[in-house]
C-alpha cells in the first residue's frame, strides 16, 4: 500500500478527532476551573496532589461513565448509587475474609455484571421503561446491600487502601486504565453498535445490528463500572457502608448531562461525560476549599444540573416541536 492510499484510508483517529467537536467549550470551562483550583491550592501540581485529586475524582468518573453508557443506549439508571453501595459492602465483607482481595474483587465484578445484565434483560427484552425498572432495582439492590452489611463496618485490607488511596497516584493510573477499557469496548462491533442502537433502534435492527445484545451488554458494563466504583470508595474509607453510594445516582446524571450526553440515546460522547465529572469534581473541591458548608453543595448541584439542561435550550434555536 503506498503512502497516498494509506493516507486516504486513515479512519480510526480521524473519526475519534471528529467526536471532539462541540466539546471545546466544555473543555475550556474545565481547564479554567482546574487553573482556579491549582491557583487556590498549589499543592495540586505535586505527585501527592495529583494522587489526592484523582482519588476524589475516580469514583465519580466511573459512575458518570456507567450512566453515560446507558444514556447513549437510550436508557438511564436510578440504581447507580445502590450499585456503588453494593460494591462497597461486598468488598468490605469479603476481602478480609477467606476469599482474599482477588476473590472479593471478582465477586464485586460478578455482582455488577450480573445485576446490570438482569436490569438490561428486563428493560430490553420486556420493553419496560428504564426509569421505573431501575428505580425498583435501586430498592432491591439497596436492600441487598443492607442485608449484607446492616450498618457501616467491615474491613478492607490496609495494604489495598494504601495502594489505591495512598500517596502514590495509583488512582490517576486507574482513570487511564478505565479510559483504555472504554476505548477497547467501543472498538468492538458490539460496543460501537451502542450508538446505532441508541439513536434509532428500529433502523439499526433492520441493518442487522444486534440491538438487544448491545443494549443488554451496556447495562452489564454499566453495573460493572458502578460496583467497581463502590470497591474503590470502600478502599478509600477502609470499610463498607450500605448507603454510601446514594449521592452518586444524581451526580452521575449531572456529570453526563453536563458533558452533553443526551437523554434520547446516541447523542454525546464518553469524553464529554468524563469532562463533566471532572468539572463537578473540581467544583466540589473548590467549594470545600473556599469554605462553603457541605449543604451548599446540594444547592449548587441542583442549580448546576438545571443550568446544564437549560443552556443548550438557550444557545441553540430549535424547532418548537
Amino acid at each position: 500500500m503506498n503512502a497516498i492510499e494509506s493516507a486516504s484510508l486513515r479512519l480510526y483517529w480521524p473519526a475519534q478527532r471528529q467526536r471532539n467537536r462541540g466539546a471545546g467549550g466544555l473543555l475550556i470551562v474545565v481547564a479554567a476551573f482546574l487553573a482556579l483550583y491549582a491557583y487556590l491550592f498549589p499543592g495540586l501540581l505535586s505527585v501527592g496532589g495529583v494522587a489526592k485529586f484523582a482519588q476524589s475524582w475516580l469514583p465519580l468518573a466511573m459512575v458518570s461513565m456507567a450512566q453515560a453508557i446507558l444514556m447513549l443506549a437510550g436508557g438511564v439508571s436510578l440504581a447507580i448509587g445502590a450499585m456503588v453501595s453494593l460494591g462497597a459492602v461486598i468488598a468490605a465483607t469479603t476481602m478480609a475474609g477467606p476469599l482474599g482481595v482477588a476473590g472479593g474483587a471478582a465477586l464485586v465484578m460478578i455482582a455488577g455484571l450480573g445485576v446490570g445484565a438482569a436490569c438490561g434483560v428486563i428493560v430490553v427484552r420486556l420493553g419496560l421503561p428504564a426509569i421505573v425498572v431501575t428505580l425498583a432495582a435501586s430498592f432491591i439492590v439497596g436492600g441487598a446491600a443492607l442485608l449484607i452489611l446492616p450498618r457501616p463496618g467491615g474491613t478492607i485490607p490496609a495494604w489495598l487502601s494504601d495502594l489505591l488511596a495512598g500517596d502514590k497516584p495509583v488512582a490517576a493510573w486507574l482513570v487511564i486504565a478505565v479510559v483504555v477499557f472504554w476505548k477497547l469496548y467501543l472498538a468492538t462491533p458490539l460496543g460501537l453498535s451502542l450508538y446505532a442502537a441508541g439513536e434509532n433502534p428500529d433502523a439499526a435492527y433492520r441493518a442487522g445490528v444486534p440491538v438487544d445484545a448491545a443494549r443488554i451488554l451496556a447495562y452489564a458494563v454499566s453495573g460493572l463500572l458502578a460496583t467497581c466504583a463502590g470497591l474503590f470508595v470502600a478502599a478509600k474509607t477502609g470499610s463498607g457502608d450500605p448507603v454510601i453510594g446514594e449521592a452518586f445516582t444524581l451526580n452521575s446524571i449531572a456529570a453526563a448531562v453536563l458533558g452533553g450526553v443526551g437523554f434520547l440515546g446516541g447523542k454525546g460522547a464518553m469524553r464529554g461525560a468524563l469532562a463533566g465529572s471532572l468539572l463537578l469534581s473540581v467544583m466540589i473541591n473548590v467549594m470545600y476549599f473556599l469554605g462553603f458548608p457541605p449543604v451548599a453543595h446540594y444547592i449548587a448541584q441542583g442549580l448546576i444540573i438545571i443550568g446544564a439542561v437549560a443552556l443548550p435550550e438557550f444557545s441553540a434555536r430549535r424547532r418548537a416541536l
Binding site: V76, I131, L250, I253, V257, F263, P293, V295, A296, H297, Y298, I299, A300, Q301, G302, L303, I305, I306, V309, A310, E313
Partner: peptide, 24 residues
C-alpha cells in the same frame, strides 16, 4: 415546559436544591 428538562431531572434537581435549602 420551557427549559425542556426531562421531568425526572428537573424534579430531582429541585429535590436536591430543596434538601440543601432545608438543612440551611
Amino acid at each position: 415546559a420551557f427549559l425542556r428538562a426531562h421531568p425526572m431531572i428537573m424534579t430531582l434537581a429541585m429535590a436536591t436544591f430543596l434538601q440543601g435549602l432545608l438543612i440551611l
